[in-house]
Design a protein around this nucleic acid. Structure first.
Lengths: 111, 111
DNA sequence: AATATTAATCGTAATATTGCAATATAGTTA
DNA sequence: TAACTATATTGCAATATTACGATTAATATT
């Protein structure tokens, strides 16, 4: 059907899936990488940096902001976006908690 | 249009986006979590565990296998899936390389 | 006030994803 | 070899995502 059956899964599973979507599109990865490098930037910076239309960038920024992974503050005449440090750390921990659960293969084959 | 313009982005950005999709659906997260816990499992285990149809599970397993994040070996009459340790480590490193690029905010506000 | 500048939102089109029933395939067992 | 078991594939249908032009809104600048 194309409708994710969220009710079948745990809150943690839905949470991980939601956060992973922040990274699941190259434009959003590019935006995040640019923010990591530049510390902060505005919509028009990204329109120049990536080759996407202003409306498209704005939409990706909105999604990232809804996920809490970036935040925007009014900077004079424009909106300045940056990484949300608290969420960033939380996302890092969420992923590493998952990554570190793989403990098999202490040398021998595990499957 | 709904068509991701991959050619606008770097190989690394497309790679991260591709890998993130493994985690961007709760059913796939559930499958990976089950594999982390059980070490290995077969399609029918997952059909019982999650509430999805056999065909749907099979499709998610196929995607995860295409991404290289799991691998399947013939185990008697059925197909046994497990985490691919090499890819798992590589994905962990890819994400942490990104996570660790956030170095701002040594106490003061960064944006 | 008229005019830029900047970004958000709306409307729409195209493509992608999700899910499942039905069917196909392959190995196993009676 | 016929029935059974287990999984993959096919063929839809429904929903989600991506992208952009056009419009709107809000603030500066002249």
């Amino acid at each position: 059907m194309g409708l994710t059956k969220k009710d079948l899964f745990t809150a943690e599973q839905n949470e991980i899936a939601m956060v992973a979507k922040a990274f699941a599109h190259p434009a959003r990865v590019a935006i995040l990488q640019h923010l990591l490098k530049a510390n902060a930037c505005i919509n028009s910076d990204l329109v120049g940096e990536l080759g996407l239309a202003q409306a498209t960038i704005s939409q990706h920024l909105k999604e990232l902001k809804n996920m809490g992974i970036i935040k925007g503050t009014i900077e004079g005449t424009s909106m300045s976006y940056c990484i949300n440090p608290e969420t960033w750390l939380s996302v890092k921990n969420t992923f590493n908690n998952l990554f570190d659960r793989h403990i098999c293969c202490g040398g021998e084959d595990c499957c």
